[in-house]
Simulated assay, not measured.
Amino acid sequence: MNILILQSKAFPHRANSFCYFYTQLTEWLTAHGAASRLFFCYLRVDDSGFENGLHLPDDYEGFYTPRNIEAACTYIAEKRIDVILDYSHIITGDTRRFFLEIRRRNPQVKLFTMIHNCPKHTTQLKAYVLPKLKLKDAHGPKGLFQWMFPRLYLFLLKRVESYQNISAYNTMDEIVLLSPSYIPEFRRLIGKKDASRLSAIPNAIKPVESNIPIEQKKKEIIFVGRFDPEKGLPKLLKIWEMVQDELPEWNLIMVGDGGKYKECAQMIADKKLKRVRLTGHQMSIPYIDRASIL
């Protein structure tokens, strides 16, 4: 079984968790009697060493251009692709037209899409963020509308999110979710009690091998991830403020970068938090290896 991953931007091989996930998938299929190979198709490249892939000729977010369709169909035939896995695209508009044309020309190929969050992730995140939105942070007409009419914005966003998921379900042969519990949630979202083209595959976690015995690890509590609203970092820092004097030998290390980085740095300074270090974007494995708590 030859699998083609369709994505906007090529992610680096080996070091990337999504690449690890798809590699595990093909290894599992091969071990269970369906010999599988992995190929990639993408619009943009930020990794000069990218392997085993097709760089589409037109960098158009919706994919639907004559040159992209011809290049993709040629590659599908050349590599004898059996399955196309869409990587986190919103399958509406020109992206939907692209997939429908691929199916018309290659009826033997199965089309799958992977949703790497909960089905209602967009509205859940906005419901978390909007109550905290301040006028000074409401940039542009959209931001001002969110600040003035948060309930109306959430109502409209739910309609958009529902439409996007209905379009994905009506276009693809299968929707792959992260958890079996998301299957009934997805059905409710698209209004189909009998929706059957739904599966669940949990995220793969790359094993972290350590040569440091647990009793020799540093007294460090480490956060690794994006400095974005859904990560709840102000809450983490508030918790640290509550316990820092009870843990005088411990340090809090925060590895990563993102939109809330400056806010976290300012919060650390304003509250005079002790033994907190922001590292910025780093390779996280050495930090995880030496820390006692992740």
Rank of each mutant, 00 (worst) to 15 (best):
G93P: 02
P207T: 04
L247P: 01
R188L: 11
S210P: 04
G140D: 06
L177I: 05
F11A: 08
M242T: 14
K142N: 08
I115L: 13
D289S: 12
G256K: 01
Y87G: 07
D173I: 06
T113W: 01
Y182G: 01
L252N: 00
I268P: 00
W240M: 02
P184V: 05
H281V: 12
V276Q: 00
K110S: 10
G53W: 03
T123H: 07
F155H: 13
G140W: 06
N203P: 09
D257A: 11
S210G: 05
K126W: 09
Y22D: 12
L38T: 05
L233I: 09
D137G: 08
I5A: 01
L133Q: 03
K262I: 10
S167V: 03
G62I: 06
R97Q: 12
L144Y: 08
R275T: 03
E230S: 14
K271D: 00
L294A: 13
S17M: 11
L233K: 01
E263M: 10
R96I: 05
E246S: 13
R159P: 02
S179W: 08
A31T: 09
R37D: 11
K274W: 04
H116D: 13
L25V: 11
D194W: 04
W28V: 13
T23C: 08
K79T: 05
K193M: 10
E70R: 14
F50E: 11
E61Y: 14
V276H: 00
L135V: 10
G191E: 04
N68A: 04
L178P: 00
P184Y: 06
K219Q: 15
V276W: 00
M267L: 11
V45T: 15
F186A: 01
P131V: 05
T122V: 15
I166Q: 07
E246R: 14
T26D: 04
V109I: 12
P229Y: 08
T95Q: 07
Q108G: 12
I166K: 08
Q216L: 13
K120V: 11
P234L: 04
L56G: 00
K193V: 09
Y42N: 09
Y20F: 15
K142V: 15
Q282P: 02
T95N: 10
A168P: 02
N203C: 13
Q164A: 12
T26Q: 04
L177P: 00
T26E: 04
R197Y: 08
V176T: 09
S179K: 11
H13M: 14
L273G: 01
H121S: 14
F21A: 08
I253N: 00
Q24T: 05
S88W: 14
A200Y: 04
S88E: 15
E230C: 10
F63V: 02
M242H: 15
H139E: 12
G62E: 05
H13A: 15
D289G: 06
L130A: 06
L4M: 11
I115F: 11
N68L: 05
P213K: 10
G256R: 01
S284V: 06
M172V: 13
R105P: 03
I84M: 09
A168Y: 01
R14H: 15
E263L: 09
R96N: 06
N16A: 14
P12Q: 07
A127N: 07
N170E: 15
K126A: 10
I3E: 00
Q164D: 12
F186P: 00
G259E: 13
S179C: 09
N106A: 14
P213I: 07
V109D: 03
I69A: 05
Y64G: 02
K158F: 01
